[in-house]
Design a protein around this nucleic acid. Structure first.
Length: 626
RNA sequence: GGGCGUGUGGCCUAGCGGAGAGGGCAGAAGGUUCCUAACCUUCUGAUCGCGGGUUCGAAUCCCGUCACGCCCGCCA
């Protein structure tokens, strides 16, 4: 990566972060916001107290070394400044730590009860108010949802060419994309979800030609599934096979027809558009049904042809030609981006005068930047170079490219290689989901006999749980991993219901619901009885509250960095904390004091809200029983 | 060949400048008259690909190297 690009990316991240500072003087809103983000409030308090103390001691305070301590340390936040100050102050780190700890007046801090040292580390221990406020905030079913930023973001994801069934190779796109959109929405952005439909490319011209040329009897096989895209993809495959294998004259004739379709679209010919649309809309309709199973829904399907017909692509071409890097070479217009660190020229106008995908995508991106404050695109690693070209070209065309961010993921491959719609290799997402549901159903039925709880699961419940767990497991498995890591698809690995998978975290939610229902509290409603947080004194209860307190910070960081997998990591940590509480702190046992019972019920309700909302960000169902 | 990305116990994975590198699976041993055991506890297992460097401190930053993936089309 070149230095200039690194700087640009860093700048983009900074801009994104800077915007999260509240600028509106809306006091109740601010209060609600601070109130609901305990961990962040604590961090802010620790930072300012530490900075002031260091200033008082005449020590530099530019790097405070604030960090989260290891699990076995009692504090919620720690600092390693003492290491950094050792040279300056001429004393060993533990000594400095002790001096600083003594100088901090914890009595004036709201969320810090005391400051301790452990060797060179400063440890900040939470106050009663920290636990109390956390519980108060988390009893709200909307806990974790950050205040409105009054800023819109368009998240474009999936955008697979409408050539056939959605296969597992690109399943990461809707799953990661939907989670990115969800986490941004939770973080207070006004989110729109877009699917960009590539209806103007050569592939769609081939498809349209093939669909119009061949008949049912020309096709070798039956549709793999009774849905439109499985039916039509056979024409697409047939067409491609024909172009590869037929004799030269036949191929030439076919190419002429394909070319005329592309020229028709370029010219804005209504009849051609109708022909292509019939194929595009039908196939897309089937793909939407598949994606809806995840579920991944979209606010808008934006067609590429739209930017050809409205003149925006021509406008982009005209402006690109005016740029310094524009060159006319080998009868085609290209953009030399070597000055921007990209060695590969971007061709933006073919020798026959038609536009290319990147040209239209530039018009599309300008449209997004006009209509939204920010734009996020989720795309496969094979589009990385193109993404850089788009970003750089947008910048050269006078757009603020920092408002655009791209999330790149690696494809899911089969052990024997890539999945391909055209060649018909690959595992269909529908099949994966079906298999997941059926395996989940087996699990539910196997467990039916030795259930302790007598809640009499009916056939409907079994069906519901099988869907929630099966689809949840597939989504969780994908969204929990960093997108940049390559995944090789294997059935048993994708459908592992063991610990650290969706059912493990879903089970926590079901346990919460079980307790609340047993106590006669409607799961969806707010907690109405009074409770006293200070009664929650055991280590398990405190750990759970500390974990709950971190949730809004997790949402914020995941949104800032567009990394929903952090929320998945959090659900695991949360499940551990809850299971320890569940094991050690009975809620409804007869020997539990009534006030303690109420406090613990509030904690269970808070836990349920936290887990339900975290799962909702991941797009994984939160079952009320399992 | 060039660019970008990824390499963490047998397998999967978190951490990406600070406290014996967390989890999970697989393997071994335990736990249910008690709010669902899709749970929990304990044990076994890691020179964080390799070699240098920067730093008080490196899995994390820098350089080199190896392996794998992706890209380098007037395709999308």
């Amino acid at each position: 990566m070149t230095v200039s690009r690194w700087c640009r990316i860093t700048k983009a991240v900074d801009t994104f972060r800077r915007r999260r500072a509240p600028v509106e003087p809306d006091i109740p809103l601010l209060a609600a916001r601070i109130r609901s983000r305990m961990f962040l409030s604590l961090r802010a308090e620790v930072e300012s107290a530490l900075r002031e103390t260091l200033a008082d001691l005449d020590l530099p305070s530019d790097d405070l070394g604030i960090e989260e301590p290891p699990e076995d340390v009692e504090s919620v936040l720690a600092s390693s400044v003492a290491f950094r100050l050792a040279g300056e102050a001429g004393a060993p780190p533990p000594e400095i730590a002790a001096t600083v700890a003594d100088a901090i007046d914890a009595d004036h801090l709201e969320f810090v009860s005391r400051v301790e040292t452990q060797g060179p580390y400063l440890n900040f221990l939470p106050s009663e108010a920290y636990f109390g406020e956390t519980l108060e905030a988390a009893v709200d079913p909307d806990y974790g949802r950050l205040a409105d930023r009054e800023e819109s973001v368009v998240v474009e994801h999936t955008s697979a060419n409408p050539t056939g069934p959605v296969h597992v190779g690109r399943a990461r796109n809707p799953i990661v994309g939907d989670a990115v959109a969800n986490v941004l929405a939770y973080a207070g952005y006004d989110v729109a979800r877009h699917y960009y439909v590539n209806d103007a490319g050569r592939q769609m011209a081939v498809f349209t030609w093939a669909y119009e040329t061949f008949d049912e009897e020309d096709l070798e096989s039956e549709p793999a599934r009774d849905r439109v895209e499985y039916d039509l993809v056979r024409y697409y495959r047939k067409g491609n096979a024909f172009l590869e294998n037929a004799d030269d004259d036949a191929v030439e004739a076919a190419e002429a027809e394909i070319e005329s379709i592309m020229q028709g679209l370029e010219a804005g010919d209504e009849a051609t558009y109708e022909r292509v649309s019939e194929v595009v809309d039908r196939v897309l309709g089937g793909m939407r049904e598949c994606l809806a199973r995840l579920p991944a829904e979209f606010d808008e399907f934006v067609k590429e042809t739209r930017f050809m017909f409205d003149g925006q692509t021509d406008d982009v071409v005209a402006r690109l030609k005016e740029l310094d890097g524009a060159i006319y070479e080998e009868e085609a217009w290209q953009l030399d981006l070597s000055a921007q660190g990209i060695e590969k020229n971007m061709v933006f106008l073919r020798s026959d005068g038609t536009s290319l995908y990147p040209t239209r995508d530039l018009a599309h991106h300008e449209w997004k930047l006009e209509n939204f404050d920010r734009a996020v695109t989720v795309l496969g690693e094979d589009h990385k170079l193109q993404a850089e070209q788009i970003r750089t070209s947008l910048d050269l065309l006078g757009n603020d490219a920092d408002r655009l961010r791209q999330v790149i993921y690696s494809y899911v491959n089969l052990p024997e290689g890539k999945m391909s719609t055209r060649r018909g290799t690959g595992v269909q997402l529908d099949d994966l989901l079906d298999e997941a549901i059926s395996r989940a159903r087996e699990e539910v039925e196997d467990r039916l006999d030795d259930r302790i709880r007598d809640d009499d699961l009916g056939e409907e419940d079994i069906e519901r749980i099988a869907h929630q767990v099966g689809i949840g497991a597939v989504r969780y498995d994908i969204v929990a991993k960093q997108p940049a890591k390559a995944i090789t698809f294997e059935w048993d690995q994708a459908l592992d219901f063991e610990a650290q998978s969706a059912p493990y975290v879903q089970y926590v939610h079901a346990r919460c619901c079980g307790i609340l229902e047993e106590a006669g509290i409607a799961v969806e409603s707010e907690v109405e009885t009074a409770f006293d947080p200070s009664l929650l004194e055991t280590e398990a209860e405190r750990d759970l509250l500390e974990t709950i307190a971190r949730f809004p910070a997790v949402v914020e960081e995941a949104a800032d960095d567009l990394e929903p997998h952090r929320v998945a990591t959090y659900t695991r940590e949360f499940a551990e904390a809850f299971n320890a509480f569940y094991r050690e702190c009975p809620v409804l046992a007869s020997d539990v004091d009534e006030d303690l019972r109420d406090a613990r019920l509030a904690l269970v309700a808070a836990s349920r809200h936290t887990m339900a909302n975290a799962l909702s960000i991941l797009g994984v169902a939160a079952p009320r029983s399992m």
